[in-house]
Design a protein around this nucleic acid. Structure first.
Length: 253
DNA sequence: ATGTCACAGTCCCTGTGA
């Protein structure tokens, strides 16, 4: 089983790259964030042509999350079931695994109301995941907009006082992991940074100025079966790339 | 370098978000 998560930064703008990537890499499941389109615009037929079923929680101009699967999609749930107006989480069962595709709020700045929203949102995610059945095989993937540790940041000195690295959001992420989930890319690559996002500005990608903020969290059973995990940096190159690269995990039977 | 990309509306530029 090959599973990937990818913030595509507009599926409308990125469809040629997503189409090409699915043809080349042929993952079993792709978790998508920032589709930035309504359900009416979502390319269900395009995914179908590639052999995938898909489910989308779209909003329009901003946000939007999806699950694309070669193994069926059942029991789709959009949002937390609270009053959150933004389309940032969709979950579904594909085969015998429950998948969650998440786009955590950016936060903007520590003093911005959006940062408080980010912390509330992470708390909602923790509650949701803490309530899952112990027997449920689970994969949570997405753009967390949190770099778990300083090793996940190309130059921590440039991020003092910024979002993505603050202790409250890192603590919130640890609480999520404490429900029984493993950050599989870091577990399997303790010595490689594995950055997944590079700012479009400043030539950041070519300078290696990245952050690891896109994560795949696996329950302990799946984590034991995981063989390798990597960032597909090639997808960040070339014509009209997203500012994020796909993060992949391969799981044995 | 405050250096780019994508979106919608004010609609071929500007403001917002990332």
């Amino acid at each position: 089983m090959k599973i990937a998560t990818w913030n595509v930064n507009s599926l409308t703008a990125r469809w040629p790259r997503v189409d090409e990537w699915l043809e080349t890499e042929s993952p079993d499941i792709l978790l998508i964030q920032e589709t930035k389109q309504t359900d009416a615009k979502f390319p269900f037929d395009g995914f179908s042509s590639l052999g995938y079923e898909s489910a989308h929680y779209g909003q329009g101009q901003w946000n939007g999350v999806a699950i694309v699967s070669r193994h069926g999609i059942d029991d789709v749930v959009r949002g937390f079931g609270d009053d959150d107006p933004e389309a940032r989480i969709i979950s579904a069962t594909c085969g015998d695994i429950r998948f969650y595709s998440c786009y955590i709020p950016n936060g903007r700045a520590l003093e911005d109301p959006h940062y408080a929203y980010k912390l509330r949102w992470l708390s909602s995610l923790e509650r949701l995941l803490a309530a899952r059945p112990l027997s449920q095989r689970t994969i949570v993937g997405g753009d967390f907009n949190v770099a778990p540790n300083d090793f996940d940041v190309y130059d921590p000195s440039k991020f003092r006082g910024a979002t993505h690295v603050s202790e409250p959001e890192r603590a919130a992420l640890r609480q999520i992991e404490a429900t029984g989930l493993v950050d599989i890319t870091r577990k399997l690559n303790p010595l490689e940074p594995c950055y997944s996002w590079w700012d479009y500005r400043n030539g950041s990608f070519h300078r290696g100025w990245g952050l690891r903020i896109d994560l795949l969290l696996l329950d302990a059973t799946l984590a034991e079966r995981a063989k390798n995990s990597y960032v597909d940096r090639g997808a960040r190159k070339g014509e009209k790339p997203s500012d994020h690269a796909p993060v992949v995990v391969e799981i044995g039977d």
